[in-house]
Amino acid sequence: MKAPRILFVTGEYPPMQGGVADYTRELSRALVGLGHEVGVLTSVGASQAPDEPSITLFPQIARWDWRLWANLDRLIEHWQADVVHIQYQTAAFGMHPAINLWPTWTNQTKALTAVTFHDLLRPYLFPKAHWLGLRRGMTHTLARGVDLAITTNPEDSAALRPRRPDLIEIPIGSNIPCAPPPNFDREPWRARLGLPAKAAVLCYFGFLNASKGGELLADVLAGLVGRGIDAHLLMIGGRVGASDPTNHAYLQQVEARIAAAGLAGRVHWTGHVPGPEVSAAFLASDLCLLPYADGVSYRRGSFMAALAHGMPILTTPPAVPYPDLIDGETLLLAPPDAAALTAAAHRILSDADRRRGLGETARRLSERFTWPAIAAATLAAYRAAPHV
Rank of each mutant, 00 (worst) to 15 (best):
2 K>D: 07
2 K>G: 12
3 A>S: 13
7 L>Y: 13
7 L>Q: 11
15 P>N: 00
16 M>A: 14
18 G>K: 03
22 D>C: 02
26 E>M: 09
33 G>D: 09
40 V>H: 14
45 G>N: 08
46 A>T: 05
56 T>K: 15
57 L>A: 10
59 P>N: 10
59 P>M: 02
60 Q>H: 12
64 W>A: 09
64 W>D: 11
75 L>K: 00
75 L>Q: 09
75 L>D: 13
77 E>M: 01
79 W>H: 13
80 Q>I: 00
80 Q>P: 07
82 D>K: 07
92 A>W: 03
94 G>E: 08
95 M>L: 15
96 H>P: 11
98 A>C: 02
101 L>P: 04
106 T>S: 15
107 N>D: 15
109 T>V: 05
114 A>Y: 09
114 A>T: 07
115 V>I: 04
121 L>S: 14
146 V>G: 12
147 D>G: 09
148 L>Q: 03
150 I>P: 06
151 T>S: 11
151 T>D: 08
152 T>S: 06
153 N>F: 02
156 D>K: 04
163 R>L: 13
166 D>T: 07
170 I>T: 05
171 P>L: 04
173 G>H: 05
184 F>S: 07
188 P>S: 03
200 A>L: 01
203 C>D: 13
206 G>M: 04
209 N>M: 02
214 G>L: 05
215 E>R: 13
219 D>W: 06
219 D>A: 14
222 A>D: 14
223 G>H: 12
225 V>P: 02
227 R>L: 11
232 H>W: 14
232 H>I: 00
232 H>R: 12
234 L>N: 09
236 I>H: 11
243 S>C: 12
247 N>E: 13
247 N>L: 03
252 Q>D: 15
253 Q>E: 14
255 E>S: 11
256 A>V: 03
265 G>D: 07
272 H>N: 12
279 S>R: 08
282 F>Q: 10
284 A>M: 10
286 D>M: 08
291 P>Q: 03
293 A>Y: 00
305 A>G: 13
306 A>K: 01
306 A>F: 04
307 L>C: 00
309 H>E: 07
310 G>F: 07
310 G>W: 00
315 T>L: 03
317 P>G: 02
323 P>C: 08
333 L>R: 03
337 D>L: 05
339 A>V: 08
342 T>F: 10
344 A>H: 01
344 A>K: 14
347 R>V: 06
358 L>D: 11
363 R>S: 08
363 R>P: 00
379 L>Q: 06
381 A>V: 06
384 A>K: 11
